[in-house]
């Protein structure tokens, strides 16, 4: 389980997240709802080990997280993958889509072009798109590459932070299908963050509201 308990994050004097708790179980899609600005993305960054909280604890499959970002052990931080809301900001503008998907593999010293091609195919990216740079493709195509990148290392937990916002309906459906197929195959836990309750009702097995005190009592 990916378990966050009593997480508090402050940006200067501004409290972004106050005593939030959340549990993501393997094989389950947990929805996280809440209005804009309530700290959903902040919590996502904490869960992905990218932001050290002011207080609170985080455990990944029982292993407590004591260090964050690059200081966290590589094995621990690659167990959780984060898919960002805005794909344009989430990819290096200099890289081609193939390089974007390949990045985690080469960073871990095991480049595998076959795996890149396989994931690109699953994400619906054709060969000609893989040689293009981010400014040469649409938001939807870029987000497909981001999802493929997130799946390359087969993480135990996948955090989808408003993954389908701003995308057309068919791309939304394709990406949700892709994540669901991955979950069913690997038993990974998924956190679907959205303020779209219709999407969460259809996608998530259970939904937690970040503003609901009842949800926060039982992580």
């Amino acid at each position: 389980m990916l378990e966050a308990s009593g997480i508090t994050v402050r940006y200067g004097r501004q409290v972004a997240l106050d005593d939030a708790s959340l549990t993501i179980e393997p094989g389950v899609v947990t929805g996280l709802a809440g209005p804009s600005g309530c700290g959903k993305s902040t919590l996502a960054r904490v869960l992905a080990l990218m932001l050290r909280p002011r207080s609170g604890t985080l455990t990944v499959d029982g292993d407590p997280v004591l260090r964050w970002r690059q200081r966290a052990p590589r094995e621990l931080r690659t167990r959780v993958a984060l898919i960002y809301q805005q794909p344009r900001l989430a990819v290096d503008p200099r890289l081609t889509l193939a390089d974007v998907i390949r990045e985690p593999l080469t960073a871990n010293g095991r480049p595998d072009d076959g795996r890149v091609a396989e994931l690109a195919g699953e994400a619906g990216l054709t060969g000609d798109l893989l040689t293009r740079r981010p400014h040469e493709v649409s938001d939807g195509q870029l987000q497909r590459a981001c999802v493929a990148r997130a799946l390359t290392l087969e993480p135990r937990y996948l955090i989808c932070d408003e993954m389908t916002t701003m995308l057309d309906a068919s791309t939304q459906a394709h990406l949700v299908r892709l994540v669901n197929a991955y979950r069913e195959r690997t038993g990974a836990g998924v956190l679907a963050i959205s303020h779209d309750t219709i999407l969460l009702n259809r996608w998530a097995d259970k939904t937690v509201d970040l503003f609901d005190p009842a949800d926060q009592k039982q992580p």
């Binding site: 590589r74 931080r77 993958a81 900001l89 989430a90 990819v91 960073a107 871990n108 990148r149």
Partner: peptide, 24 residues
């Protein structure tokens, strides 16, 4: 920036982030 975070999250070490994402 999210793209640097994504690289770190994907296992990139400090030197790789500097060489591949910061220096260029």
């Amino acid at each position: 920036r999210p793209f640097v975070e994504a690289a770190v999250s994907g296992g990139a070490g400090r030197m790789r982030v500097v060489r591949r994402h910061l220096l260029p």
